[in-house]
């Protein structure tokens, strides 16, 4: 495994992990499609619950779409490590000679590509149902593009903490939702700024800097949590 130095084999291990996760998602398309169906249904509820009036819907649209996308991501995160913990794949993951930091990064990355990225693409389109303007939809997409990897990384910490707990469910929401507050504030803030024709780059930059911080720190927390969950 280590024949040509750790650098090359580490990249290969990350790639193998990533590929396996994509393959799993391909074989179980439900894991990808269910969060999107959830997103569509939640967004449909708002015109029914609040009002079908376009101007009022547009006012709440940035927040509603963001909250719905956030909840859909969290729902999908619940099972991120649990099935691996149950069938023993996680043990192998921990026994691997490679740095757990990068393997966790690869795991969060594959979650983002398979679940969060499709959500980031669908959510702005669904914003159309809430009469979001095309410009706001574009900014919504940009904000989700920067924000959803943050959700995957931070959410993975919670999923890893609960990998050994049988009934995670609501508990994951309790642990992670407060940590999502800044993402929600700046993500929805960017879209609202775009709606009012105000500059929105600052919000995206703030989201980006939080993403950089999370990329550097979250994998440590994820790997430490996985070690605890399996100890």
């Amino acid at each position: 495994m280590n024949e040509n130095g750790t650098g090359g084999s580490l990249l290969r291990a990350m790639y193998a992990q990533f590929r396996r996760d994509l393959l799993m998602a391909y074989r179980h398309p439900q894991d990808v499609l269910n969060p999107i169906a959830f997103l569509v249904m939640v967004i449909t509820l708002f015109p029914l619950a609040v009002t079908p009036e376009a101007s009022r819907l547009a006012e709440i649209a940035p927040g509603v779409v963001w909250v719905a996308a956030l909840l859909a991501t969290l729902l999908s995160l619940d099972s991120l490590f649990r099935s691996d913990a149950e069938d023993g794949a996680l043990e192998l993951f921990l026994l691997s000679p490679h740095s757990l930091f990068f393997l966790c990064l690869a795991r969060a990355g594959s979650h983002w590509v398979t679940v969060a990225l499709p959500l980031a693409i669908c959510a702005p389109l669904l914003g159309y149902l809430l009469s979001l303007s095309p410009h706001a939809m574009w900014v919504m997409f940009l904000a989700l593009l920067v924000g959803t990897p943050l959700l995957s990384l931070v959410g993975a910490i919670g999923a890893a903490l609960l990998a050994g707990v049988q009934r995670g469910g609501v508990l994951l929401f309790l642990l992670i939702l407060p940590l999502f507050v800044p993402v929600l504030v700046f993500g929805a803030g960017a879209v609202m700024a775009a709606q009012q024709a105000l500059p929105y780059v600052g919000h995206l930059a703030l989201l980006g800097s939080m993403l950089a911080l999370a990329l550097a720190l979250a994998p440590f927390a994820i790997s430490a949590s996985l070690r605890v969950a399996l100890s």
């Binding site: 903490l161 407060p178 605890v228 969950a229």
Partner: peptide, 26 residues
């Protein structure tokens, strides 16, 4: 396990507190 899991969560929380505070003020 509970001790270490809670410790990780508390440390993650404390890293996030300044960010949350700033975002809420903003």
């Amino acid at each position: 396990a509970a001790a270490r899991a809670c410790a990780i969560l508390a440390v993650v929380g404390v890293v996030n507190i300044p960010i949350i505070k700033y975002s809420v003020e903003w």
